[in-house]
Amino acid sequence: MNVDLEQRNKKTVRALVILVFVMFLFAVALIPLYDILCEITGINGKTKQESAVLDYKIDTQREITLEFITSLGAGTDLAFKADKYEIKVHPGEVVTMSFTASNKTDQRMTAKANPSVTPGPSVGYVKNTECFCFDTQVFEAGETKHLEVQLVINPTLPEHYKRLTFGLTFFDTTN
């Protein structure tokens, strides 16, 4: 085989190997990309922590039903519920909902909750300023905790949304 072909093969292989690594990095990059995409489009309805203080004008003409759904992962031995199942809110109004969670075991438990808003595309309008789901919670044996979620609905929420569901699922993460 001639030297020229050798060189060309080497060049081709080098370019393709770079492509392989780029694609691998792309796969890894999909993780943050997906989060960003979810934030924009609400693919999985996950809320983000809002850092800025939001000062919306309260739209007293509109009323949205806000529903709080609590769930437990398999093997998560907590009692967990929202203190109210659903409330009516005006867009722009700061709402605080409290939850009660008790550790039913005689051991210390760490648990984390995952938030999920449905319908998905509305998630961009649900501004979650505080949520116990942003941090891991530690429960002493038998401990009962009162936990809070604070949120504001952006008044630009499209008209057709009348009911929003805020779901929280606790998972035992002790191990």
Partner: peptide, 15 residues
């Protein structure tokens, strides 16, 4: 029962 997660009861809200 004391070990198990209690069945969450619903507090309905009629406000």
């Amino acid at each position: 029962k004391s070990l198990q997660a209690a069945i969450p009861t619903i507090v309905s809200d009629d406000e």
